[in-house]
């Protein structure tokens, strides 16, 4: 009897995890895509030195961080997949969402302080363990530069970006 209840609970959690998790993920992706368009004018690069024509007036550290958790279903599927090896697609989307979210928050931080260019962007990922469940933190940081004259020319790199 007890086993049956336990099994029932497991199946319920699996079903709840699947539906709720799918909705949460879809919403998050929609929000990410929307904000990525909004923040398209804030440029972020991993390069260590600014483009030639940018003489910054001000340089300061900007950052964005997010802690995100996998759902019950995804964790279960990943656990099964772990037996055979190969791609864990369910975790790939989790990591991708976290990275894009952290980058967006970094861009938000930059724009809030009046910058439209961030260079030397670095990512850091930390596993936050809460029992069996997978949750990760992604921290993005970089240096925001505000050029003396905000002319289109100052951003020589813009033309190299796909439209």
């Amino acid at each position: 009897m007890l086993d049956l209840i336990e099994f029932g609970l497991f199946v319920t959690l699996l079903i709840v995890g699947f539906f709720a998790g799918t909705i949460v993920e879809k919403r998050h992706y929609a929000s990410i895509r929307k904000r990525e368009r909004e923040y398209a004018d804030v440029l972020a690069f991993a390069v260590r030195f600014p483009p030639d024509r940018v003489t910054p007036q001000r340089a300061f550290l900007v950052h964005g961080t997010v802690v995100i958790s996998s759902d019950y279903f995804k964790t279960f599927v990943a656990g099964l997949r772990n037996l055979f090896g190969g791609r864990l697609r369910t975790y790939e989307t989790l990591m991708e969402r976290a990275r894009r979210e952290a980058l967006l928050r970094l861009k938000h931080d930059a724009r809030r302080q009046g910058a439209k260019l961030v260079i030397c962007v670095r990512f850091e990922t930390t596993t936050i363990s809460t029992g069996w469940a997978a949750s990760i933190e992604v921290f993005a940081f970089g240096t925001a530069l505000i050029p003396e004259r905000d002319t289109g020319l100052a951003f020589g790199a813009r033309s190299a970006l796909p439209a």
């Binding site: 802690v67 958790s69 759902d71 019950y72 809460t130 933190e137």
Partner: peptide, 26 residues
């Protein structure tokens, strides 16, 4: 926060309490 995060682990999504915690710590 830990208990709440445990519940959130079922449905997935952002753990806002932890995000704030990490931010404050940094």
């Amino acid at each position: 926060k830990d208990i709440f995060a445990g519940l959130k682990n079922i449905v997935g999504g952002e753990l806002k309490g932890y995000t704030e915690l990490m931010q404050e710590a940094r």
